[in-house]
């Protein structure tokens, strides 16, 4: 456990989460969400949960991003609210 890395990763986690819900362009939101998943995977490794980190990296940062992007292709790319 490296506490400085933990603090930095948790800080960037909160920043990425706030950026993902506040940005207007939905494609940017999807990419930031992928970044969120990547940071979350590092946090899982720090918590000694390598299996969960593996799932987070492959599903959260990989497949979900691809599915969100192709769902965006079929709809409009801007948030209305």
């Amino acid at each position: 456990m490296i506490w400085a890395l933990d603090i930095a990763m948790l800080f960037f986690l909160v920043v990425a989460a706030l950026a993902a819900i506040s940005v207007k362009d939905l494609l940017s939101a999807v990419i930031i969400l992928s970044l969120y998943s990547l940071i979350m995977a590092i946090v899982w490794v720090e918590l000694r949960a390598v299996d969960v980190a593996f799932t987070e990296a492959s599903v959260g940062a990989g497949i979900t991003t691809v599915l969100f992007i192709f769902a965006l292709v079929r709809t409009t790319g801007r948030s209305e609210d």
Binding site: V50, D51, A53, F54, T55, S58, V59, G62, I63, V66
Partner: peptide, 25 residues
């Protein structure tokens, strides 16, 4: 590799299947 080492290390059928699907995607 991830599928076949699922019992003894990190990984497993789900993660390995997702990685295989990523290659097809």
């Amino acid at each position: 590799y991830v599928i076949f080492h699922g019992g003894s290390g990190p990984g497993g059928g789900f993660q390995g299947g997702v990685i295989l699907a990523a290659s097809m995607i």
